[in-house]
Amino acid sequence: MQRYRFVASAVAVGLLLPACSGADGPDLTVEGAAAVVQQPEAAETDEEAAILVHHARSRMSPSRAGVAAVYLDLENPTATDDVLVAASVPEGFAGRVEVHETYEVDDDSMAGDGHMSSDGNGHMSDDTGMHGGSDSDAPAMMGMREVPGIPVPAGSTVELVPGGYHIMLMDLAEDLVTGEEFTLTLELEHAGAVTVSVEVRDHADV
């Protein structure tokens, strides 16, 4: 069968990539959480609870969509499991920032959770604007939801990529323009706050 990219979100667990962690590239060390690290390659908090962030990037947001997704790699070279629990941007940049995942809706779990189910004929059943039944050969629906955290196990790298996990910016004050950068602060359970610079890229480079 064909290979499709929508597999899972955290892909590269178990991959340790020293090449990307500052061994060859510029070794950027941040004193405390408030400093902004100019990427390209790596950002690091301190020796103790280091989480390295690579390739922090966002797709430009066209046409006042008001939303954008940030993708990045989280490398945990320590011996302690960690969890990305939250993220934030400077005040006034976006109304809300959430840790999200793109997921496939499981029809069996939809009954009674507040979503409307089909009338069996695939027609609108109420004002939720629901359409399409869940017959066996009907395609799954895709959605997006907030997650309590993204685990970053000790010694692993977790990639936030399109179709999987992302950091969701909502109520953006302005469109994100290709080439610009903005500041994003990640909250990790153990490593604490890690602030990185996110590069806004054209759609094909995300």
Partner: peptide, 13 residues
């Protein structure tokens, strides 16, 4: 169109 092509969508109330 959704019926013909098999598209499904749902707008949250």
């Amino acid at each position: 169109a959704a019926d013909r092509l098999g598209v499904r969508y749902e707008i949250e109330a």
